[in-house]
């Protein structure tokens, strides 16, 4: 279980937001969402989540740009970021990982796989104190 860790979901599709929120909430994550690309970096900084799930095709701003900004910020360099996108080609995966994505998943996803990925990348910070 997640011990109430906070996930910030940056996504603009209402139905996908609802599905991800349901899946993660049921697993004990505290899920907050942000639908706009333009001020997404500010939102991350303000909410300081334990994990970010980031869509690429957002209104106004690309998810890749947001990721690059996050990694450029010292305080968020280690923040686990899961890039979740409908653009599933190898070059998209390569680009995401090069920009510093912790994990890359393609839509549509299996709920179980999403849950496991989220658990995995959030693990270091949850297990280190143990």
């Amino acid at each position: 279980m997640s011990d109430g860790k906070r996930v910030l979901l940056i996504e603009d599709e209402p139905n996908i937001i609802e599905a991800v929120r349901f899946i993660l909430s049921r697993d004990g994550w505290r899920v907050s969402t942000h639908a706009d690309g333009a001020d997404a970096v500010d939102a991350v900084r303000a909410r300081a989540p334990d994990l970010v799930i980031l869509d690429v095709m957002l209104p106004d701003r690309s998810g890749y740009d947001i990721l690059a900004d996050l990694r450029a910020d010292e305080s968020m360099r280690e923040l686990p970021v899961l890039v979740l996108t409908a653009r599933g080609q190898q070059k998209d995966r390569d680009l995401a990982l090069r920009l510093g994505a912790t994990e890359f998943m393609v839509k549509p996803f299996s709920n179980q796989a999403l849950l496991e990925a989220v658990r995995l990348i959030a693990a270091p910070s949850t297990e280190a104190p143990q």
Binding site: I16, V20, R87, K107, N111
Partner: peptide, 23 residues
């Protein structure tokens, strides 16, 4: 690439919610 995105987006919701209902 654009079509794939446009198709994948609704399919994502469908798959996700159908799994929720199935499980």
């Amino acid at each position: 690439s654009q079509i794939s995105h446009e198709l994948r987006t609704p399919m994502t919701s469908i798959r996700s919610f159908s799994e929720i209902l199935r499980d």
